[in-house]
């Protein structure tokens, strides 16, 4: 049974038909890499999966939490789906530890002590156990992004969404974040990530999705798809990325 099941999903921004019937199934432990040109709808698709964008038509089910044509229990869905953003979006008035503790304490009513343990465990996982009391502006971009990952993990999500999480980082900080994602993937975390790191997508992902003009244009095993793209659009995209 699939963990995430999307059927016939449509999304408009005004007259702009951004997602034109997306069907997608993601199994437990899958690592899905979403690629495609800017504006092809990758972020929008990712954001619908935890309800940051409403759905005009179609169905979305994550581990039993469902939205039909945009209606359903958003907060139940979001407890199953973690998200990491390009711009980190850490809460600047809270320390790294408090950032991680907030959602477990207020959403799940976890006791403060237990939440603190969870936060320490998660910060350890992303290699920042010594930064519990640091504020976001005292951390490098790579460290902030790792705290953001720890913050999402603290809610024990079934699936983690990553939207170009290394794009805002200085090149020398990219690898520390990718290493954390790689580690999560090897532990069996289900991941759906929009990425421009093609090598990473091929090495870590077990499913590649190429989006083009609001549709899934081509998909399959990353190694196969990269080696022999079936559509001229994907071939062109891969060529363009390699030149860059």
């Amino acid at each position: 049974m699939s963990l995430v099941k999307i059927t016939g999903l449509h999304k408009h921004f005004g007259a702009n038909h951004v997602l034109k019937g997306i069907d997608l199934e993601v199994a437990q432990g899958d690592v899905v890499a979403l690629i495609g040109r800017s504006g092809s709808g990758k972020s929008t698709l990712l954001r619908t999966i935890n309800g940051l964008e409403t759905i005009d038509k179609g169905e979305l089910v994550v581990d039993g939490a469902a939205l039909h044509d945009g209606k359903g229990d958003l907060r139940a869905l979001r407890q199953k789906v973690g998200m990491v953003f390009q711009q980190f979006n850490l809460f600047p008035h809270l320390t790294a530890g408090q950032n991680v503790m907030l959602a477990p304490t207020v959403v799940k009513s976890t006791s403060k002590r237990e939440a603190e343990d969870i936060a320490k465990e998660m910060l350890l996982k992303v290699g920042l156990s010594d930064k519990f009391n640091s504020f976001p502006d005292q951390l490098s971009g790579g460290q902030q992004q790792r705290v953001a990952i720890a913050r999402a993990l603290a809610m024990k999500p079934k699936v983690l969404l990553c939207d170009e999480i290394t794009s805002a980082l200085d090149p020398e900080l990219v690898n520390e974040v990718l290493a954390v994602v790689r580690q999560l993937a090897s532990e069996g975390m289900t991941l759906i990530m929009v990425t421009h790191e093609m090598r990473f997508a091929r090495d870590v992902g077990n499913k590649l999705i190429f989006m083009h003009q609001g549709r899934i244009h081509e998909s399959g095993d990353p190694k196969t798809v990269f080696a022999a793209p079936q559509t001229p659009e994907l071939a062109g995209f891969i060529g363009a990325v390699q030149e860059a």
Partner: peptide
């Protein structure tokens, strides 16, 4: 800030 906190189910 709204989006990050929404995605955490607040």
């Amino acid at each position: 800030q709204w989006e990050a906190s929404a995605s955490l189910a607040l």
